[in-house]
Write a protein that binds this DNA or RNA. Structure first.
Lengths: 120, 120
DNA sequence: TGCTTATATGAATATATATTCACATAAGCA
DNA sequence: TGCTTATGTGAATATATATTCATATAAGCA
């Protein structure tokens, strides 16, 4: 796999040959969609907060998350579905409760890195 | 600064004392907004593509970016404004052209990390 | 000076999506 | 069995935002 680590532009590139070469090096449309989708998960404050409280609480049911955030269970449940679909959280059912917890994955790495940056 | 690296939930937490403690450990609203805003920049395929072509081309004017992506200059310009506002790109004016290039920063680290994950 | 190109931007439109609301299901409990 | 609580979800609403369109400005050029 080609190394695609990106740095700041040191190169200068304006001729037609170069433009054609950039066009050829375009990744599949799907890759761009995947990247956008990944960032999209944490592009919403509510979902960011949910991830944070799960990191703090370890395992929490919908009602508790909603209480902590001061939101309705319904709103939280809708957002949890998205986090579930993106495998950012996992669930454990116990009686009438559904406990949510973080599902270790790539996105948590991004989250941690972003948190560090923001807190600098 | 408190260490806030998050792992999967090994802890179990359901009692009221614990809930109160989580509430106390909530970060400032602004932190959650900052994180969401950071991820928001790359949550859109067009902006992801622009970052990619700038990484390939080094320095490109609006028209060239638009040509490569098959979009109007206007649409690209609108998106570039957002990337500019978030300091993800920088500009250099030369005659009637405005050359855009990546502005090394935190978000590019996130971008590279995400690209790696997606390509696995 | 007039014409073309490059860029930027406000307004309008189209689309995506967060939250609310109403409601359904399932479990515990009196 | 009824009542309450926990969760999930479709539809409606409200809001955010991507793209288009019209237009403005600035630079190069005939």
């Amino acid at each position: 796999m080609k190394n695609l680590q990106y740095n700041c532009g040191e190169r200068r590139c304006v001729d037609e040959t170069c433009l054609a070469s950039i066009k050829e090096n375009m990744l599949d449309e799907e890759v761009f969609l995947d990247i956008a989708e990944t960032f999209q998960v944490l592009s919403e404050p509510t979902r960011v907060k949910i991830v944070h409280v799960l990191a703090e609480g370890g395992e929490l049911c919908v009602h508790h998350i909603a209480t902590i955030l001061g939101m309705t269970s319904s709103a939280v449940s809708h957002q949890l579905r998205q986090l579930r679909n993106m495998r950012l959280v996992k669930t454990r059912k116990e009686a009438q409760h559904v406990y949510y917890s973080l599902n270790d994955g790539h996105i948590m790495q991004l989250f941690n890195q972003c948190l560090e940056h923001v807190q600098e």
